[in-house]
Design a binder for these strands. Sequence first.
RNA 1: GCGCCUGUAGCCCAGUGGAUAGAGCACUGGCCUCCGGAGCCAGGGGCGUAGGUUCGAUUCCUACCAGGCGCACCA
Length: 546
Amino acid sequence: MNHAIYDAAQQAIADGAFNAETLPQIILEVPPQKEFGDYATNFALQAAKAARTKPRTIAEAIVKRLKEDWLEKAEIAGPGFINFYLKADVIYDKLAAIIAVGENYGTLDKKQGERIQLEYVSANPTGPLHVGHGRGAAVGSALVNLMRAAGYDVQSEYYINDAGNQIDNLAASVNVRYLELLGQTVEFPENGYHGQDIVATAQRIVDGYGDKYLKMDASERLNVFKELALQEKLAALKEDLAAFNVQFDVWFSERTLHQANAIQETCDFLLGNGNIYKKDGALWLKSTAYGDDKDRVVIRDNGVPTYLAADIAYHRNKLERGFSTLINIWGADHHGYICRVKAAIEAMGYEGKALEVLILQMVSLYQNGELVKMSKRTGQSVTLSELIEEVGTDAARFFFIMRSIDSQLDFDLDLAKSKSNENPVYYIQYAHARICSIFRQAEEAGLNIAAKPDLTRLTMPAEIDLIKKMADYEDEIAYAAKERAPHRIARYVHELAGAFHSFYNQCRIMGVEPEIAEARLVLVGAVKNTIHHALTILGVSAPEKM
RNA sequence: GCGCCUGUAGCCCAGUGGAUAGAGCACUGGCCUCCGGAGCCAGGGGCGUAGGUUCGAUUCCUACCAGGCGCACCA
């Protein structure tokens, strides 16, 4: 269709109808009202300036030269829009094509050449995941699914911060709880973790080994507890994420960077190309040369690398693995970190735009009308597993994904609990279950489910609307993936479910003449596949019964 | 002070420079002797403020106001 318009425009120029050296991109859109046709373009308006010709003149010249067999008519409207009215067959051809690909409708052709890595969650293994991590987990996993459906080559990864101070604090915290359980009074470490899960970990050590570690040298005991706690926390993380329908292709341990001497090598490399210098006994990254506000310490004056140093080595490692694009999902509280990591990437000779950081705005939990603090250290945060227990994986995921990542999310626990049946996710799942029910009954009634009916029997407005809505799905997938916006799919599938429910109330399947019944059955079968496909991207189940 | 995000219906949010700005919740009134009423149909209500760019701005730019989050040799 774009080609036809382009050709007509070229022909018009050749015929001297108007002059233009460069033509704007042709963008087709669905007009706001049905009277404006099936598709419309503002091409003539866009071209008007360069051509120094009235938009309507250009539009007329193009319309006069459009002769396509799929086109019923093309009209000029308003300041110069061209509205296209398709022949009725086109929509039935599209439906037939949707039916032909079955459950794969919405899965686009593979793109070539680009390898993308998506890193998300990457919460420290020092305690349970909370609801903020939940948003990252839901959005990240949905984005992986979405981009894969759109044909991108994506690998997902979780970065385990299993080295550094926070792990030492974890060990120290467990140690204190262990000693307390054995009757000793010990001062709690300053940066320790106060969560109940730490007490539980200590309790399990007591249950398993008694006072075996009591007589052990303190530093040795800390080392043992560090490993025990780390294994336990990591296992708990994986369990929570699995319950939340989140899987990772790669679990990347920060320790492997230290063990492989990667941080030292990266620093040497940057020293070598002049992007790291020594000052006040520390090593500094010259990030101001790449747009940062100030230079950043990478190796402290005591010789210990900063978190940034490990992160630079980590991103170097990612790039050396051959990814052309690195997507990171970070919480809003880390946005100030973007600039320095990009600076480091450029300092290593890569393009800054290879790193794409998606900033996820904060989640605030409300309970009894009051803000619930989410600090891990107070131990009073609501954890992801508690949230799942309260509202379920499907509702929690949908709730997290349905909003743009740029908006803060107020999650009202009471509302989610008490009114969970009014959550939009149920509206969508209900549509799916309803269609499944129709098929069960159609089978009992002896309708031919496998028939290849005459689709042109679908002429009711509700039927046409439903087909058109479904026809939009592939474009929606492509656009949402390009924009990294999984919330668009949540919105789309809600609208599709709405179009179905509307159809359902107007068009019966059972008890009408068989040819129409079979055509409608094929139609709702395609809707069922599309809803299922979209919900799968969101990581939400599509039940056959509710 | 500097940086990032946000400001759209009573509430919570969509919205790709286009035509009469859309869903949900809430509210009001209708719809099953019939495929699942967790549903459908109808109704009222509006882009933070002030400029600018444009044929055209909710969308882009600037300033201001308001809310959130950052601004470590912590992670």
